[in-house]
Design a protein around this nucleic acid. Structure first.
Length: 594
RNA sequence: GGGGGUGUAGCUCAGUUGGUUAGAGCGAUCGCCUGUCACGCGAUAGGUCGAGGGUUCGAGUCCCUUCACUCCCGCCA
């Protein structure tokens, strides 16, 4: 090929035996027999075993060489005898008998081993990311990421979408996450913001008449990290389409995701057509707007049962009178589970800050009865009503929680997950997608008690626009949707509001007057008044798609150069101090909090 | 901003109710070994037990403060 190599480290096979070759790569592993030395040479493509014995004048030098040194070896491909074939590597039928070698890159003592399945502290992995990235698992994750992105690009092209770049330096917006700010030198005292998403730009692209747009877009949000959330930056497959309804967007995304997940994972999709669940139903049945549909357990509301006179569960009855609700999770055929199974779940719920999970098991002697600590509070008839409401059968158990709606949703949601895991009900080898639809347009801010946009201020409200009831904004639904896979929120999108007057109206409900809207969204609102097409889109999170495909729980495992939890790049030392001169040019001075 | 976990050799970890000189594997260095593929065998070096303070005759171990990393809550239209 060139002066460094005739083949890659995965290029040689039996048919190459007897040919003279040269390979370059890293010394992955040495096995030194004193008079015979094996060297596993590694590059991006694979590993080739190289061998040298003491008859060769280079033997002593190679024996002393450090692991991870980059060398070029020249030698002859030889057959391995049957007993010495290594089936674990592609090149395992042959080896290269080294004639001579040169060092291309020396290596100091390593801060961490490369050839090892050990887990290391995050700190050292991030500081020496270029070493960490040599390791098999993460190296393959990053390659997967590249392949998935390039596949998505080509599929989007096939579907008729055009890829455009949008600005990285843009303006700060009042809604949403905290912005990253960039001071402007030419405009003293003013700041750019990095885009939280190309939301307004992609709508402007539609107004500009381009019909279908996509971009693998970097998004920047200055919020605290989580295992599945990088601090700072992440990537979305941002897309937008003109003259579409919700179903048109769904069709494109389903096609794309089904193809992508089938191509890059062995896990089965539960269904190629993603079921739709309303936001309201999701919160009732799963306690969450990102339900894991691999989990067969369903939450039922049985508040009404607690107003019956033949139910004597006084604690719950009292709470229900003061506005709490009762919801339950039924587990199939668990009457013979040991007491510890139930008590563990109750104890776990208490650890989660709930008042615990009451439970009973439905049994039948002569007639239906409930066994367990709270079983005695329920009459036969009340149990039959619960069975009817929840489809529970004799032999099933019922876990009960009672609380105000928000807390109840929270505890039943995590209890649903916990119980399913304890009972081993979740099939780890499938992908279960769903759409969550019909998000409310507005919600009450818990802190300020004021009305705010529940999702995206640019979403189109549902229903006949002429007849919208602005008096009851909390009842207003939006053409706003999320896509969820295995309990992971992959993306959200919406049909946009392209009507300026309606936009002003909705913003006024959220507490912005026309002047503020004009100031903050001048580009958008102006554009919409010069002939805007109806349009909508969505933005699936690339990093989370790769996490699902790579079966990783942490986003750093699919990110090449991630920051740590405190948004620091330990390898590049970012963020860092800047010079007085730089600050002066920007008209900035620092005033640090103590 | 709050809560949990972790911190002992270059790396991964063990270290008992507080008690002699803090250990192991990998790695490093040196020696032996011609068919290994996590090669094997022997030896040597390597420690501010995250940091600071306290209790005690005596602290890796108990108490307080603090730092770093990580997970979670808040936050993330």
């Amino acid at each position: 090929m060139n002066k460094y190599r005739s083949h890659t480290c995965n290029g040689l096979r039996k048919k190459n035996v007897k040919s003279k070759v040269f390979l370059s790569g890293w010394i992955n592993k040495k096995r030194d027999h004193g008079n015979l030395l094996f060297i596993d040479l590694r590059d991006n493509y694979g590993i080739t075993q190289c061998i040298i014995d003491k008859e060769n004048k280079n033997f002593k030098d190679l024996e002393k060489i450090q692991l991870e040194t980059v060398i070029k070896v020249k030698g002859k491909v030889v057959n391995r005898s049957n007993e010495t074939i290594n089936k674990d590597i592609d090149t395992g039928e042959i080896e290269v008998s080294i004639e001579n070698f040169i060092i291309l890159g020396t290596c100091k003592e390593l801060p961490m081993p490369i050839f090892s399945d050990q887990e290391y502290a995050e700190e050292i992995r991030l500081k020496y990311r270029y070493l960490d990235l040599r390791r098999k698992k993460i190296h393959e994750n990053i390659i997967l990421r590249s392949k998935v992105i390039s596949f998505i690009r080509s599929e989007m092209n096939n579907l008729g979408f055009l890829e455009f770049q949008t600005p990285i330096l843009t303006s700060s917006s009042p809604e949403g996450a905290r912005d990253f700010l960039v001071p402007s030198r030419l405009n003293p005292g003013k700041f750019y913001a990095l885009p939280q998403a190309p939301q307004q730009f992609k709508q402007l692209i539609m107004v500009s008449g381009f019909d279908k747009y996509f971009q693998i877009a970097p998004c920047f949000r200055d919020e605290d990290a989580r295992a599945d959330r990088s601090p700072g930056e992440f990537y979305q497959l941002d897309l937008e389409m003109s003259f579409v309804e919700q179903e048109d967007v769904f069709e494109v995304v389903e096609k794309l995701l089904v193809k992508t997940f089938k191509k890059f994972s062995n896990k089965k999709l539960i269904s190629d057509k993603f079921p739709k669940i309303t936001y309201k139903d999701a919160l009732l049945k799963y306690g969450s707007d990102k339900p894991d549909l691999r989990n067969p357990l369903i939450i039922n509301d049985i508040t009404e049962v607690f107003s019956r006179d033949d139910v004597s569960f006084e604690i719950f009855k009292k709470l229900v009178k003061s506005g709490s609700k009762v919801r339950c999770i039924v587990t199939k055929n668990t009457k013979d589970k040991p007491r510890s199974f139930f008590d563990n779940i109750d104890k776990w719920a208490k650890d989660q800050g709930a008042s615990g999970l009451a439970y009973f098991t439905i049994e039948k002697d002569k007639e239906i009865l409930a066994k367990g600590p709270v079983g005695k509070f329920f009459s036969k008839e009340s149990l039959e009503e619960i069975m009817k409401k929840t489809k529970a059968k004799v032999g099933d158990s019922v876990f009960l929680a009672c609380s105000k709606q928000k807390d109840l949703e929270k505890i039943t949601s995590i209890a649903r997950d916990k119980i399913a895991r304890d009972l081993n009900l979740i099939d780890e080898n499938v992908f279960a997608f769903c759409w969550v639809v019909d998000y409310p347009m507005f919600e009450i801010d818990e802190q300020t008690k004021k009305i705010k946009f529940s999702h995206n201020p640019f979403s189109m409200p549902q229903g006949n626009i002429e007849k919208l009831n602005f008096e009851k904004p909390l009842d207003m639904l939006a053409f706003q949707y999320d896509i969820v896979c295995n309990g992971v929120e992959l993306s959200s999108g919406a049909i946009r509001n392209h009507i300026p007057e309606l936009m002003y109206k909705l913003f006024s409900i959220a507490g912005y007057d026309n002047k503020q809207v004009d100031e903050k969204f001048s580009g958008m609102i102006n554009a919409l008044s010069y002939g805007a097409p109806p349009h909508g889109g969505i933005a699936p999170g690339i990093d989370r798609i790769i996490m699902l495909l790579a079966n990783e729980k942490n986003i750093r495992e699919v990110t090449m150069f991630p920051m740590n939890q405190n948004a620091q790049d330990l390898m590049m030392n970012a963020p860092s101090d800047v010079s007085e001169k730089q600050l002066k040019e920007l008209n900035l001075s620092l005033k640090l909090k103590k």
